[in-house]
Design a protein around this nucleic acid. Structure first.
Lengths: 135, 135
DNA sequence: GTATCTGCAAAACATTTGCAATTCT
DNA sequence: AGAATTGCAAATGTTTTGCAGATAC
């Protein structure tokens, strides 16, 4: 994951003090790139960090989101997921296996009409269906 | 709202018994077109239907969704909203006033790449930013 | 030593479930 | 009467909040 350089430096540069917990959470996000929920992150890390609390995971992800280094993914109404890839891309969720795939989104692919007076800050494209493995 | 004809008929044709509560909920959706949450619908209708319970609103919206006559909108992670317009359109949420706007989506506007092996059932386009009124 | 960060416990919400009462035909 | 619908109360699950202790600079 050279793209991020050393994680503590990546965080520092963006005004986030690189605490042990924050480094581990961010490291998890970029290592697995699996669009995890808070619960997934917590369960994965608590083995390594026995004192970890979910509150800290919530705090950390909120901070990351405020600082613009993670995206919040609301593709399903009963689970909030997170993504450290903040580039412009879309998400596809397979309704059979539950896997979430990323796909590239070129600007010209989204030529939205009559929104000239709207200032667009965020753009989320969510698709649902069946992935090649499950078809 | 001629598009829906009489609500009880619209529901019946789609295999939904048009109970008083169901008619009122659907009527609310098509009359206000305001992408309400369960709570909004409940609060609006309980004045008119004093015995109404939130459970019934939940049951009703789940039934409507299963039968394909409402869309679930997850533009925000802390609120599930509903839309009786099931045509292909996108949603824009103003982060200042909170209003949600619909916008048309033509097929050629969404020319998504390399998804030929994926079977797409649902497509959600959510934008966030500032609306003309709030700019 | 003072700020910040962490994590426990409780609170606040949103949603679901079980079941009994009601309604409809 | 029988089947479906409604609605209460309780359970569940997720996220937030208050605060005390730990950690970092």
């Amino acid at each position: 994951m050279e793209k991020f350089g050393k994680v503590d430096e990546y965080l520092s540069v963006r005004g986030i003090k690189p605490s042990y917990q924050r480094i581990k959470v961010f490291d998890y996000l970029i290592r697995y790139r699996n669009h995890p929920t808070v619960d997934t992150i917590y369960k994965e890390l608590v083995g390594e960090i026995p004192t970890l609390s979910k509150t800290t995971v919530y705090n950390t992800l909120k901070l990351f989101h405020d600082k613009g280094i993670v995206l919040v993914i609301n593709i399903e109404d009963n689970e909030t997921r997170f993504d450290a890839d903040v580039s412009n891309h879309g998400h596809f969720k397979c309704i059979k296996c539950g896997e979430i795939y990323d796909f590239r989104l070129e600007a010209e692919n989204l030529n939205l009409p009559d929104l000239s007076d709207f200032k667009i800050d965020e753009q989320h494209i969510y698709l649902k269906g069946t992935c090649p493995k499950c078809e």
